[in-house]
Amino acid sequence: MAATTLRSVTTYDLKLAAPLALGFLVFFVTPLVILLALSFQADPQGSRYGLTQYVHFLADRFSLGVLGSTLWLGVKVTALTLLLGYPVAWLHQRAPGWGKGVIMLLVLLPLLTSVVVRTFAWVVILGRQGIINAALGGLGLIDAPLKLLYTDSGVVMALAQVQMPLMVLPLITALSRIDPNLADASSVLGAGHWRTFRKVTLPLSLPGIIAGCLLTYAAAITAFITQSLIGGGQMLFMPMYIYQQASTLQNWPFAAAISIIFLAAVLVVVSVFTVLGRLSRGYTNA
């Protein structure tokens, strides 16, 4: 048989992806195009087209403030999640077989309950008569209950817990790919624990850190339910702003423009992460 008739076993026909591509086209690209078209309407009736809605948003300090505080909220949540999630992933890596199972179960457990339920649990924890205030009051550390619910730090705490699995799972994957001999080699060569972590473990886990940060960030800034239940009515973030314009005011063009601007802002952040990811891959392979 001639060798030319044999098909390559490592490349696949792109046609196999056609159903997925079609699905994306119909359910993702089309609505996005409609959204984009809607955002260029100058008024809700669609009598004129133009950049009115974008000018309205970008020339308005209040709207820009909402965008800024949403993006900043994502940074805070991501940082806190990384800080709390990394030790968990590290512990998972070091734990014996049964310990790994337990840690994995604990990480995955929150994913099995709805975000609404988890968020309501935080309402109970952070409330005036909640667990934190009751404990601090019982210990005599505070006289009057602290205000935790409807505050910025409350939102950050709750979001960090709610999104934690998105950070820990990529970290576990990244850490488990690191050859354990590398740490031994490092200590044989005279590096202490701290130096080994800094020079070996941390750089090698960078792809996991970046993947985790990306997921957490995207989830945190768009978390409509947690933001509004813990943040209340006076802390306005982008998802609530879009909802308010689209639903309460029926101002779809402006809501569409806000959505597109939000999408663009998130894409910028995501591409920064992606560039970092590419750099880190070069770093770890070097």
Binding site: F120, V123, V124, G127, R128, Q129, G130, K147, L149, Y150, S228, L229, G231, G232, G233, Q234, M240
Partner: peptide, 19 residues
């Protein structure tokens, strides 16, 4: 003001929590 709720349903939660 102790709270500006995002919707009337949240007021119920706030009463329950003693907020």
């Amino acid at each position: 003001l102790a709270a500006v709720a995002a919707n009337p349903g949240q007021l119920a939660t706030l009463f329950q929590q003693g907020q």
